[in-house]
Amino acid sequence: MSPQARKERERAERHQRIIDTARELAESQGWEAVTVRRLAELIEYSQPVLYSHFAGKSAIVTAVALQGVADLAVVLRKAHDEAAGPADALSRVSRAYLDFAAANPARYEAMFMMNVDLVWGLDAPQPLRDCFAELEALFRPFVAEADLGARTEVAWSALHGLATLDAHGRLRPDLREQRLDILVAEWLAAVGADPA
């Protein structure tokens, strides 16, 4: 390996270590605990080294969010691939979404609730488009292409609402499955689909 290639690999590893450490710190202590100074102490790099990778905390949170969205897309795709059909996919992918949010509260917060430099939509980075495409794939068998984007955004909003309310202890844990069943049944009824 050439010295230049080794330098690039070490830089990429350091970059990823900063992201991983920020995510782990946020998961254990909340995003308020994540500061450039604290990260520098934890990974034993100087603050200028961290600033050579990221402009500041917001850029680090954005990197955590972008990787989180990419990971969520993989989780959703796997759940969709395991489904027995379109109706089952709605249920499995919705459950996978809510499970991901519950298992990764700080990452989910970075992805969808914090002020980060990620813009959803047609010009979004590829991981965001991939994640949204996984949600769109759920409704493609049921609705016309012209309605697909809006239908997906409404469904995503419902999932996000459930995830957020659940994360903040506003929903009864014993009704989690019932809520999900009702949501999927309402989606299917709205598009005139057979729940079987």
Rank of each mutant, 00 (worst) to 15 (best):
V36E: 05
A26N: 00
A12N: 07
V143A: 03
A190T: 11
Y97F: 10
K7Y: 14
K78E: 10
E27P: 07
R170F: 14
A185M: 08
L188S: 07
L180F: 10
P127D: 02
L188M: 12
A146S: 10
V116H: 08
V36R: 05
D174S: 15
D147V: 00
P105T: 04
I182F: 15
A106R: 05
T62E: 12
V93C: 12
S2H: 08
R151Y: 12
Y45C: 09
Q16T: 14
A96D: 09
G161M: 03
R38G: 06
Q29T: 09
K57Y: 11
H168Y: 14
H80R: 14
A103Q: 15
D88M: 03
L148W: 07
A103R: 15
A150K: 03
L148V: 07
W31A: 07
T164L: 10
Q67Y: 00
G68H: 01
I60L: 05
F139G: 02
A137K: 01
E109D: 10
L118Y: 07
P105M: 02
R77H: 15
L122G: 03
A70P: 02
R170S: 12
E13Y: 01
M1E: 08
V143N: 00
R179G: 04
I43Q: 02
E186G: 08
A79F: 12
L76N: 03
L98N: 04
L180A: 08
P173D: 06
T164Y: 14
G121N: 02
I182R: 12
R77K: 15
D99N: 05
L50E: 07
Y97T: 01
L25A: 09
D117N: 13
F54Y: 13
I43H: 01
D147Y: 06
R23A: 14
W187E: 06
P195C: 00
A96F: 08
I19L: 07
R140K: 12
S94D: 14
V191C: 07
W31E: 04
W156K: 11
A150S: 07
P105N: 00
R92D: 03
V184F: 13
E145L: 14
A63I: 05
L122D: 13
R151M: 14
T152Q: 00
T21C: 11
R170A: 15
L138Y: 06
A190D: 11
V184N: 03
S58C: 03
T164G: 02
V34C: 04
R77A: 15
